[in-house]
Simulated scan of single mutants.
Amino acid sequence: MTEHSDAPLIDSAVEASLEKQQASDNENQRNRKLLSRQVARYLIQNPTFFAENMELLENIQLPRESGKTVSLMTHQTNLLRERNIEMRQRLDQLLQNARENDQLFLHSRRLVLALLEARTVAEAGDALLKSFKQDFKVEVTALTLFGPLPGSGKQLGDVRSSARTSAETAIGSILRNGRTVCGTLRPTETAYLFGKHADRVASAAVVPLADQLGVLAVGSSDPNHYRSSLDTLFLSYIGEILERLLPNLLVRS
C-alpha cells in the first residue's frame, strides 16, 4: 500500500521539476534575446567599436553553409570580394549595352540618311532592305504599298504593291489595330505579307503605315524571335519615317 500511495507524490515531484526546468530554460532564452538586442544596439550606436578592438574580429566566428565557421574578418573579406565581382559584372553589362546602343545609333543614322537621299520608291526600298539585312540582321523584310498609287506607281523595285481590298481581306485585323504587332501570324497573313518568302517566316513584326499607305513587315525563322513582348520602338520609328517620305516619292514615279 505504501508503494502505491507514494507514486503520485513522485510523479508530482517529477512534473514540478520539469516545469521548473522549462521555466528556467524559457527565462534563459528571454535573457539571451534581450542581451542580443542590447549588444546589437550598442554596436549600432558605436560603429567604431571593432576598429578600436581589432583583436576581436579574429575571435568572432560565423557559420557557413558548408558547416565550417570563419572569422568575422574573413567573412567580411569574402563578402566584399563577392560584391566586387557583382559590381564588375554590372559594369561590364552597362558597357556592353552602351556599345550596342552606339552601334544601333550608327546603323539607324545610316539608314535614315539613305532614305532621305532616295529619289525614287525603288531606291528607298533598296536602302531599307539592304540596311535591315546587313546592319540589323533581319532575315526577311517586305514593304507593301496599297493601290491605287499616286503617279504611275510602276517603278517600285523590290517594294511590293497591293490593292487595299486585298489587304483588308488578308490582314484586316492588323490594319484596324493600327499599331505595330509581333508574334506568330496566321498562314494567310504570312503569305500575303511575305509572298514567296513566306515559308521562311515563323514569327513576324508588322507596322501598318498611316493614311492607308501600306505595311512594313519583318520576319524570322525563329518562332520566338518576334515575341508579343518585344520592344517595337525602332520599327515604329522607321514606319513614321516611311509615312513622311514615300508619298512624295510616289508622286515623282
Results as ranks from 00 to 15, higher is better:
Lys130Pro: 02
Lys68Gln: 15
Cys182Ala: 15
Glu100Gly: 01
Glu55Cys: 01
His107Tyr: 12
Asp102Glu: 14
Glu139Thr: 05
Arg90Ser: 13
Val112Pro: 02
Leu156Pro: 09
Pro63Val: 12
Glu65Leu: 05
Gly178Phe: 06
Asn101Val: 07
Arg88Glu: 14
Gln96Ile: 06
Arg99Tyr: 01
Gly178His: 01
Ser66Lys: 03
Ala142Arg: 10
Leu106His: 10
Asn84Val: 02
Leu95His: 07
His75Arg: 11
Val112Leu: 10
Glu86Ile: 07
Thr144Ile: 14
Arg109Trp: 07
Gln93Pro: 01
Thr180Glu: 09
Leu115Cys: 08
Leu79Glu: 13
Leu128Gln: 09
Leu116Arg: 10
Asn78Pro: 00
Phe146Arg: 08
Gln96Phe: 04
Arg179Ala: 10
Thr144Trp: 00
Glu55Asp: 14
Ala167Glu: 10
Gly147Pro: 03
Gly153Tyr: 01
Gln96Arg: 14
Ser173Trp: 02
Leu91Thr: 12
Met87Ile: 12
Val138Lys: 01
Ile171Trp: 00
Pro148Trp: 00
Gly151Ala: 05
Asn177Cys: 05
Val159Arg: 02
Leu143Pro: 12
Leu111Thr: 07
Met87Glu: 12
Leu145Asp: 11
Thr141His: 00
Phe105Cys: 01
Ser162Thr: 13
Arg83Trp: 01
Leu111Glu: 08
Asn177Glu: 11
Gln93Val: 12
Glu139Leu: 08
Pro148Asp: 01
Gly157Cys: 09
Gly67Pro: 11
Leu62Pro: 05
Glu58Leu: 03
Arg164Cys: 06
Thr74Glu: 15
Pro63Phe: 02
Gly125His: 07
Glu58Cys: 07
Arg64Phe: 00
Asp102Leu: 13
Ala167Trp: 02
Leu143Arg: 09
Leu145Val: 13
Val140Thr: 12
Asn84Ala: 11
Ile60Pro: 08
Asn59Thr: 13
Ala114Phe: 03
Gln89Asn: 15
Ser173Pro: 12
Gly178Thr: 11
Leu57Phe: 00
Phe136Trp: 05
Leu79Met: 10
Thr77Ser: 10
Arg179Phe: 04
Met73Tyr: 04
Asn84His: 04
Asn97Gln: 14
Leu149Asp: 03
Leu113Ala: 08
Arg164His: 11
Ser166Trp: 00
Arg90Leu: 15
Ser66Ala: 13
Gln155Ser: 14
Gly67Met: 06
Leu80Val: 13
Thr169Glu: 13
Pro150Met: 03
Gln96Val: 06
Gln76Glu: 12
Arg119Cys: 09
Asp102Arg: 07
Leu106Asn: 12
Arg119Glu: 15
Gly178Val: 07
Leu145Arg: 09
Thr169Leu: 05
Phe105Trp: 13
Arg164Lys: 12
Asp126Asn: 08
Lys154Asp: 07
Val159Phe: 02
Ala118Met: 08
Gly157Leu: 09
Ala142Val: 04
Thr169Trp: 02
Lys68Asn: 10
Gly183Lys: 01
Ile85Phe: 03
Ala114Pro: 08
Gly157Gln: 05
Leu175Arg: 09
Arg64Leu: 15
Thr141Tyr: 02
Gln103Arg: 14
Leu104Trp: 05
Asp92Lys: 11
Pro150Lys: 02
Ser166Gly: 06
Asp158Ile: 11
Leu145Gly: 08
Glu82Leu: 10
